[in-house]
Structures are given as C-alpha cells and as structure tokens.
Design a binder for these strands. Structure first.
Lengths: 256, 256
DNA sequence: AGAGGCTCCCAACATACGTTAAGCTCGAGT
DNA sequence: ACTCGAGCTTAACGTATGTTGGGAGCCTCT
C-alpha cells in the first residue's frame, strides 16, 4: 500500500516534518510550488511530548504555533466540577492552535493524547509568509474555518446521537483525515489513545466507552487494540455513524 | 437606561442597519474612522423572515453573506433519523455565514428562530473592503475565530453539564453578547424563541426544556415569558452555568 | 366570541448512561 | 520471569433525561 510506505518515508527522514503541513494544506486548498518552497523553509523547533504535559494552557498568550508531526493531540476545556470535554483531536499535519495568531488569549488547553512530536513556528514567521503569499493566508483562514466545521459536526454528534453512533462517526472522521495525509494502513490506522480520553471526547463515562467499543466489535464493525483501530465494515460503520464527509471540506473525498 | 434608548434609536431609523455590524466588530477589534465609513457604505439588501423558511440551506454555495439586523437566527444540522442540533444562535450584528467567503459549500443550514430582519452583502463587496482595508480582513477572520470559540464552549456545555447548567450558561452568554451591541434592557432582553428550538440547541427534549425552565424559575434565577428573559440573580446564574466570558473575546467584559 | 392551532406544562413510565467497585490483562521495568 | 501499575472489562444499581399522551393557556383568524 502507498500509505504504509509513506509512514516509512517519514521514519527514514526522507520527507521533512514540514511536508506534513504542506500535505495537509494541499488537501484543502491549492498550493503553488513557490508557496511550497516558502512553507518548507519555515523553521520548525521540534519537541517530543507525552500525555499529561500540556502544550499550551488555557489563559496563556502564545507567541508561536504548533504543528503536529507524529501522534495525536487534543483541545480540551474543564468545568469547575472536574469534567473535561475534548473538543478536537488533531492528526499529523494539523496546526492545533493556529487561532492564536489572531486571538490573543487561549480559551482552551492543548495537550497530547498519545506520545507525539510537534514542531513550533513563531507567529511572526507565519505572518511574514502570509504577507508575502496572501493565498497562503487564505489557506490558513480556510484551515481555521474547517476546524470550526468539525466543531459543528462534533456538536451534532454529541447532542443528537447515542454513544454508539458517536463513536462510529469519529472513527469514520479519523479514517478520512488520516488518509488525507497518507497515514492510514489499508483499512486500519495507528491510534494509541486511551478509552478514558475518548470518553471525554464523546461526553460519556469511560465505563460506557468500553461498553460501546464492545458493541461495535460484537457487531463486526470495528477491531480495536490499545494501539490500532481496524475498520472491518466501512459501509456499515458509515451507516451507524450517519457519516457524511462534506464537513471536512477535503478537495477529493475518497472512501477508505 | 442607555440600552433601551439604543433600541428606540434603531426603531426610529436614526442608526442604519450597518451600524449594528460596526458595533459588533468594534466590540471585538479596533476599527478606525475610515474603516467605519467603508463599512457604512456597504450595500445591504434588507429582508424580513419568519421561522420555518431557511436563509441558506445545507449544500448550497452562497455568493453573499447575511447580517442579522433584528431578531435571532441559528445554525443547525440534521441527523438522518430526524434529530436537529442547533449549534449557534446569532444576535443582531452577527454575520452567521461569514465562513461562506472561503468555504464554498455550506455544511449547515441557517434559519430564523424568531421573526427577524437580515441584510445581504455580496461576497465581492466584502472582498473589496478587505483588500482595501486589510485590518478589516483580520477583524473578520477574528470574527470567525470567535464563532469557533463559541462552538467550543457549547460543546463543553452539551458534553459535560447537566441540562440545568446548560440553560443557565446560555442565558449568561446571550446576556453578554446582546449587551455588547446595546440590546439589553436592564437585566432582561427580548427573546421570542420557542422552547422546542432551545431544546434542539441543548440536545434535550422539549419536555425536559420545560422542566428545566421551571426549575430555574423556582430557584429564583430567571423569569421567562414567551418573548422575554429576565435575569433575577446574575451571580447565582453565572454560578449555576459555570460561566466564564473569556471565550467571547470581547474587548471589555462588564457583567450585566 | 368561537374555533383552531401552536406552545407550554404535567404525570407516568421507559431507558441510555453514570457510578461504584471489583477483577482482569497487558506491557514496562527490574 | 516476576512485579507493579495503568488501562480495560464486567456487574449491580441509581438517575437524568426520553417518550407518550393528555390538558391548559394563549394567539390569530373568521
């Protein structure tokens, strides 16, 4: 499969971390060769992170943005009585806090939900690139708009579907987003995220999360391990999750 | 009160519909006098709408944006089995579909949830203003980022709080947003939205919506009629809704 | 003023999901 | 190979909320 060799390419360092960002932007907006060169020249300060240590904390005023290079991060907020809602999950190529470019104060926390590596880019560098190549500025704006579109879809998911459907829906979403950056391996993908974290993303308890995974497995839709998710029946899963990929605004929507 | 006379000013047509948009942008971003003039010159095609008729439908590709002038509109999505999730409520001054500027296909529906009047502005006119005054482009980008911040907060609300807290939270939010455009009347505001609509915004049934309103009234936090909401105890309401206005990113956050 | 239609309210009952608590499994480290 | 802890699973029981259905209040139109 082309996808799994892409993973290997990344491992062997023959594609640079910036290429994931480029791939992501290409998946939602046309990017010229000159713009690609500009993106490739962006300085990335690489860091390895483990769950439990925030990347940016609520209330901070960051002066840089973060690009996910490997692993998964999430956006979350807490209620005063200890509840945690995860409201976004990021895959490699995403810029989780791109909004900090124009919204000074962070109104959410950003944290790894698997061990992961990220790259930091100073705001001013991004600003410079946008000034020189206005179409890249539009691409980044578009990126933030798609983030919002995903928020909307999650709200539909959490507000109107039962837990079973919510999980099916998210798995479909992750499958498509990972495929867009070439990180699926056939009909499965690496996803070392605990059920407790997922529960917080669905607004359910971790006990119920376990129940639902069990039901999905029993019905032959999914096969889940601690590190991977395998889709056994894409059509049924899409049906169960009432999934329509329009909201991802990908240039070309191919099923897995 | 200054607020209620503002309402009268609007009635008597001594402020133009564009002024609400200007007021909204000023509440989140500095706007120069020259920029104000440019905004005032934007052509607005006015329309009166009733609930039940969509403003823009899912899947369409609008060539104009809509500004709310009076009343309330909402963004919604449907599940295949008939559920409806309202994921945003707009107050006068808001541009509900500003995202259509850079995201061709609508991935949600936009509809009035009270009788209301809106104004339409062609995309190209907005584009021109942004090209001439880049800071206005940034202000609009910022506007879309704040929309996203509100989505995030709603997700926390729906995913982690019980219905009682959800309702308290939203009332706090509406109070502050309406105050920012001068549309509160002391500690109350006009809000002719049915409980069935609100139920769809909270992800609960309309029966439960009624229960919760009853509880809020019984505890002396709120007084609700078909057309108005009056906050009886702002501090308690804020407490009950676990409300922190940071996410609204208003320039100055004054309590009601 | 009466009829019809929304909207809201209330009561009885059903259920998806939360909570608690107890084992179990797996992988990391010695 | 053994230990230990984090994560997962299962069961029993409690509750917030859904559903159904009936009735009361309140507009609007005739």
């Amino acid at each position: 499969m082309a996808q799994s060799s892409d993973v290997n390419l990344l491992m062997t360092r023959s594609i640079s971390p910036n290429d994931l960002l480029i791939r992501r932007l290409q998946s939602i907006h046309p990017v010229s060769n000159e713009e690609i060169r500009a993106l490739r020249d962006l300085p990335l300060e690489i860091a390895s992170l483990e769950p439990g240590h925030d990347i940016v904390r609520m209330g901070e005023r960051p002066t840089q943005c973060c690009v996910v290079i490997e692993g998964f991060t999430c956006i979350y907020k807490l209620t005063s009585d200890g509840g945690r809602q995860i409201m976004a999950i990021h895959v490699p190529g995403d810029i989780p806090d791109i909004q900090s470019l124009h919204l000074g104060v962070m109104d959410f926390g950003l944290a790894p939900i698997s061990s992961c590596t990220v790259g930091y880019i100073p705001h001013e560098k991004i600003q410079q690139v946008c000034d020189t190549y206005p179409r890249l500025g539009v691409a980044l704006w578009r990126e933030t708009l798609i983030d919002a579109a995903i928020y909307r879809d999650w709200m539909l998911n959490i507000g109107q579907r039962e837990a079973f459907g919510r999980v099916a829906h998210l798995v479909c979403e992750l499958m498509m987003r990972l495929k867009a950056v070439g990180l699926t391996e056939g009909s499965s993908f690496k996803f070392p995220v605990t059920q407790a974290n997922l529960a917080d993303a669905f607004g359910i308890s971790s006990v119920h999360m376990s129940r639902v995974y069990g039901m999905l497995a029993k019905q032959g839709l999914l096969l889940v391990t601690r590190t991977h998710i395998t889709v056994l029946d894409w059509d049924e899963l899409q049906e169960a999750g009432d999934f329509d990929p329009t909201y991802l605004h990908l240039e070309r929507n191919a099923p897995a």
